[in-house]
Design a protein around this nucleic acid. Sequence first.
DNA 1: TTGTAGGTGGTATAATATAACATTACAAGC
DNA 2: GCTTGTAATGTTATATTATACCACCTACAA
Lengths: 162, 162
Amino acid sequence: MTAWGFEKHDHTHCIADGVEAVATACQARGLQLTPVRRRVQEILLSEHRAMGAYEILDTLRAEGLGSQPPVVYRALDFLVKHGFAHKVERLNAFTACNHPGESHTPAFLICRQCGAVVEAAAEPAKGALGAAADQVGFEIEQTVVEAEGLCPACRNKGPRNA
Amino acid sequence: MTAWGFEKHDHTHCIADGVEAVATACQARGLQLTPVRRRVQEILLSEHRAMGAYEILDTLRAEGLGSQPPVVYRALDFLVKHGFAHKVERLNAFTACNHPGESHTPAFLICRQCGAVVEAAAEPAKGALGAAADQVGFEIEQTVVEAEGLCPACRNKGPRNA
DNA sequence: TTGTAGGTGGTATAATATAACATTACAAGC
DNA sequence: GCTTGTAATGTTATATTATACCACCTACAA
């Protein structure tokens, strides 16, 4: 797959198309895309980076959609559970999924300079990790694959603290 | 590499040899293995699972080695920075390194049932993830690779909530 | 002897996350 | 219509993880 996200693109589509895709998937699967859930997904889609739960909560609060932590955590749980968003463990933060609905094993490229997060694909269970797991009889159910480094733009700006 | 850790083994060696290896590496590199640092490493080595910082702190506290969070976080920072321990992002917890001192990219197999954590090796930067990164010009500096699932023992006990 | 660097010990607080319980909305079945 | 079950919401309180910051101490070199 291509991790296209570092390039410039018409970002207005990202939000609209993203929410649209989630709405469609919800309808198909009989899931309720409630106002809070929809808004959280929009917020996540609005930037190609990972956002903390409390950062999202601030926005919801400003809009009167809920003011307490459980509100945002519940919405995030829903989105993550159904594959519409992912948690970036390294950052304890969340990001919208690139191809919502499709089952996949996400992997992330995280720029430590600008904070951009791009979803790539990796099938670690099929690579060296899967081999090691097989060898000892470990059954992999979920994987976390995250790479931290410098995105193309930040590399070009010169190594500030590389 | 072999992820041998799920099997039974003579565990007394794990602690002694582990601390020994760290002490040697510190001497070779001119690092100070102070009492707190040594004790934290021992505590991590004492179990093949990941331990939370506050869990470690409880032990230190009981032994009069320090009672405040910064004490344990400083020791963990030191150990992680120099490759003697790793942070398991998925669990926000820490575990001793299998081959301290050697530079390597750790990967973990985490049993969701019994909490066992075993370090394996993976070179994700060389696999699909590395390819995706190259493609977009992303420079990988560090990776997090963690798999969650069931260890052999827990698989045999029957799928309690699989 | 005076910096300076690294270590320690501590307070306070920030940031992330969940437990627990009351309330509301709505559809299914009587 | 009424009741019942389920899912979502609202809210309080608290748990868990992590860091900022300041004071002090020791070794060691300028």
